[in-house]
Design a protein around this nucleic acid. Structure first.
Lengths: 237, 237
DNA sequence: AGCTCATGTGAACGGCTTTTACATGAGCCG
DNA sequence: CGGCTCATGTAAAAGCCGTTCACATGAGCT
């Protein structure tokens, strides 16, 4: 039977008991289905089984709910990136690329968070705590870039780590925004977004003087079959 | 005196005479001010001095208006990129970078178009003519990449031009989306988006084996005290 | 002049956001 | 237990928006 309140809350009396959480959850569902624009405050209330005015006891307005979601998104994002970076294990370059992939994975698997964070049209800088969360996430990329910069081949000037971080961020974000989501804004690609990004990062790192003689799409540590060295895009011509 | 119809149309009778155009113009204004989400069909009608039902004679619904704007945006975008590319003059790499800058310039100077094209949440692939316009714009980047690929240093495997084009696109799009707009979604940067992107592209090209012995942000012109020329921030090995 | 059809109007429906006055009942204090 | 208080939820209403429909207007053609 399914006449329960649809959000897992059992029968309830006048008070919901966990409305704020239920609303956030409902909003996530709705945003992932219809995008942040299609999401409706009233819908979320309905889904939680309360009147349309109830949400206002927990969020100043619709934007604040979306901002809350973006906030959580950045927190999960930070945690995911931290995990992917894994303090640079087993080696810096491998970990670095894992971070890029994590970025894409997040965009694909958490489209609702991703939308709220990057496509909701919220003035990011208006909300200090949101801004801070966003910066903590970026700090992971920056820390990784820092380590990578320190590894730059001797005899070359060190690229500014901050700049590297911004470059990596923009690549990841560009790929994720243009090609990364499951079903929206899809453009046909001759390869997976992951492979596209991996090749991009490898070429970039090579431009910085790193030796990147691994091939994309292979597990870390694999060596190309003996013989020619291939580029990050696969077979040489 | 300002009781004229606000969109430059002089007094008019029952018929507007140029409503479709006036609506598109009004929508552009509104979108650039309040984003594609804040834009309102009724507002556009008001601004054009007609009743809220009038727009329906020209657009099936609100989405179709936005799609029309995106369409025009892609056309202008294509034209701008074509101009920037200038068939590869004076040399391929220079022209290539000019294309990247044009991308940023477009995002900054035509935020309304840019929003409609990339952030409106429209299903790009639902509208064939929109899709086609988008692909014509991308074709410019692809053509440029093709020429660049042909120039790749001998002795290195040639990267697929399509992939290079996608890489450049994602870099440009990433930088533009994250840092490129005048006042929205601003994050603090230690450098201009243009310089950031230029350095990124130069490093990338060097990763492909190109010699890029110019420096970014040439306007600055200053040299590090003992610096040798080459590379986006200094000298390669 | 008269016809026709594209274009604009006014009114209406339903839905959304937000506010306000009121209802409920959970938690606390004696 | 009895009663108080305040966070939390409700109902109703105002104002806006998108969209539709029957109807008005007049531009352009014959």
């Amino acid at each position: 039977m399914s006449w329960r309140k649809d959000q897992g809350r059992a029968e309830r009396g006048y008070h919901h008991g966990n409305l704020k959480e239920a609303l956030l959850q409902a909003a996530l569902d709705l945003i992932s289905k219809k995008g942040p624009a299609g999401f409706t405050f009233a819908d979320a209330a309905r889904m939680a089984g309360v009147s349309p005015a109830a949400p206002y006891r927990h969020f100043r307005d619709r934007d604040e709910l979306i901002a809350s979601i973006a906030q959580r998104g950045f927190e999960q994002f930070e945690s995911l990136l931290t995990q992917a970076w894994d303090d640079g294990r087993p080696d810096t370059v491998t970990a670095f690329e894992r971070v890029g992939k994590a970025y894409l994975a997040f965009a694909r698997e958490e489209p609702a968070f991703y939308s709220a964070m990057f496509e909701s049209g919220l003035p990011v800088d208006s909300n200090p705590t949101l801004m801070a969360a966003s910066e903590r996430a970026f700090a992971i990329i920056r820390a990784a870039a820092e380590r990578l910069a320190a590894l730059a081949p001797p005899g070359m000037p060190r690229p500014p780590a901050m700049m590297m971080a911004l470059h990596i961020w923009s690549m990841s974000h560009g790929v994720a925004s243009l090609f990364g989501r499951g079903d929206a804004a899809r453009r046909k690609l001759p390869m997976s977004p992951e492979d596209l990004l991996e090749a991009e990062v490898l070429i970039y790192l090579r431009g910085l003087g790193f030796r990147t003689d691994r091939r994309p799409g292979t597990a870390a540590g694999d060596e190309p079959p003996a013989g020619e060295k291939s580029g990050p895009w696969g077979k040489p011509k």
